[in-house]
Amino acid sequence: MDLAQFFDILWSVRWPILSGIGVTALVSALAIIAGSFVGVFVGLALTYGVLPLRWLARVYTDFIRGTPVLVLVLASFYILGTIGLQLSAFQAGVLALAVFCSSHVGEIVRGALQAIPRGQTEAAKAIGLTFSQTFSYVLMPQAGRQIAPAWVNTAAEIVKASTLLSIIGVAELLLATQEVIARTFMSLPFYFHAGFLYFCINFSIERLGKYVEKKLAIPQS
């Protein structure tokens, strides 16, 4: 296999590959946004919810976290159609990833809120803050520092999990690559190429996470 030949072919298939990258980015972004939004509420329910709600949130997160993402994706794809919700593979896939994301974000939020010492809430009460004031001025700013880097990691997880949508026929980067391979029979360079692109995306996200963590750290000493 010579390299020039590969780049020639890569150039000829640039549009499907680029479109695959676009779909991967779109799927991931939608899932992260929706999942994080729901996840914050799940996290709050896990930490401060009244008993039946908290219990419900616990079952939800445990069930989702105990199920492989691929099963979530397949279930979402097959089940929603059966119960009359006509969703495209794209929509079903985004939904599955968003659900997956929400359970992770829920746990991250819960973990961060519970890591704050009890004394903080008590001190806030003692100076007369209401719960919502305590939450927004005392708890969230502290929890946020722990949430942010973990949340960035979750984003990288979602990008990696988005490859699973190739199995239900969403033409994201992996499926686009596989279609190219089916036409060119060059599995080695193109799988490598796809792996490299994913690596670049995730490595940048990971760096971003490290940067955010450093930036947000409460100054010590």
Binding site: A156, L164, L174, F192
Partner: peptide, 16 residues
Amino acid sequence: RNTPILVLILFTYFAL
């Protein structure tokens, strides 16, 4: 750590 596991699986099985 930064490569999706599915890509690794397919790479090993189809490309190697």
